[in-house]
């Protein structure tokens, strides 16, 4: 290999490294991160994006360069050099990806643990906890009541960092039904169609489903957990940025799946407290008003068609204590 060749290879390698690092770190592909857990996930994404950009440039570069440089010359009917392999190179390109995926795996494991994914309280699953009950209430919809037990759950539990800080999490029960989320605040008894949480306090959601499988997803928190009828799941996060974020059902749950959306509102402690007070006053009068307030706009357009009306809402189980 000549010096000129070596220089070319080194400068190409440096160029690929710089572009990959730059794109891996500065791409604005993910939405704003509203919790420390989300920032940790973004860290993995940036690393993976850096590696992926590097490999992408390398291999696409080889393909394009080959297509130009190694084109058959007109009239040349001979074959190329009979190179059948090279054990050293093959070992290198087996070893490098192995090391890369090992690093990504260990990093992912670490982040997942920090998110509370390996919290024994939340990450075990011993199957359906109880036979769900069949109710023959509303318009042929097979309403199910998922049973709640105290500790068997799956999903993301308490993060080790929060546990050591001894913060009391805000506990909210989430019931997902076609096509809405119902949030029940255990302490105050408030039932809402929107999720309000105070900034800075850990939140623990207990997620159940009332009919089919749904999923609770907040892109800005990078957390998602399926709500499975007959099982209880749990996720935890610590919102650190005030704002309104979408809560999206991510598991196909029927024709109006796309309209199953609501808001997560992360607000200051005072704003949260006054919202709770307001809800308590309103709900001491009637339950269904509060639920109706929470109905999100995209769904309203279809409410009639789906068969959601005041009567349906009244028949919903208040909450399962």
């Amino acid at each position: 290999m000549t010096t000129a060749n070596k220089l070319t290879i080194i400068s190409i390698a440096i160029a690929i490294a710089i572009i990959s690092l730059w794109y891996g770190q500065s791409n604005a592909l993910l939405p704003v991160a509203a919790s420390p857990e989300a920032e940790a996930v973004d860290g993995i994404f940036q690393l993976m994006m850096t590696v992926a950009t590097g490999l992408f440039l390398l291999i696409e570069g080889v393909l394009i360069y080959s297509a130009i440089r190694f084109r058959k010359k007109p009239g040349d009917e001979t074959d190329g050099p009979p190179v059948e392999g090279n054990v050293l190179i093959e070992i290198v390109w087996t070893a490098i990806p192995t090391v890369i995926v090992l690093i990504i795996s260990i990093y992912s494991f670490d982040v997942y643990n920090a998110m509370g994914g390996l919290d024994p309280e939340a990450s075990r699953d011993s199957g359906p906890q109880q036979v769900a009950e069949k109710t023959n209430s509303n318009q042929g919809l097979e309403g199910l009541i998922a049973s709640v037990s105290d500790y068997l759950a799956l999903g993301l539990g308490e993060s080790p960092a929060n546990r050591s800080k001894n913060l009391t999490p805000l506990s909210v029960d989430v019931n997902a039904i076609q096509y809405a989320f119902l949030f029940t605040y255990g302490e105050s008894g408030v039932v809402s169609g929107e999720l309000h949480v105070p900034v800075g306090q850990p939140v623990r959601l207990k997620i159940t489903a009332g009919d089919v499988i749904h999923a609770f997803w907040v892109p800005q928190l990078r957390v998602k957990q399926d709500a499975v009828p007959g099982r209880e799941a749990q996720i935890s996060f610590t919102p650190q940025r005030t704002g309104e974020y979408p809560i999206i059902c991510a598991e196909l749950c029927g024709p109006y799946h796309g309209a199953m959306k609501t808001q997560l509102i992360v607000e200051s402690q005072q704003a949260y407290q006054s919202w709770i007070d307001q809800q308590q006053v309103a709900q001491s009068q009637s339950l269904e008003d509060a639920v109706a307030v929470g109905q999100t706009d995209p769904l309203n357009a279809y409410a009639e068609e789906i068969g959601v009306n005041q009567q349906t809402l009244e028949q919903l189980p208040p909450h399962t204590h």
Binding site: V41, I44, V101, I104, Y107, M115, G117, V223, K224, A250
Partner: peptide
């Protein structure tokens, strides 16, 4: 050659999806 170039993109995103915390974000998206 188009196969190699397009499959590469699917392969790289496949490695990303293997990472549990990242997959939890983009699953079903």
């Amino acid at each position: 050659m188009g196969f190699v170039s397009a499959f590469l993109i699917g392969g790289l995103s496949g490695v990303m999806l293997a990472s549990v915390p990242f997959d939890i974000h983009v699953h079903d998206s």
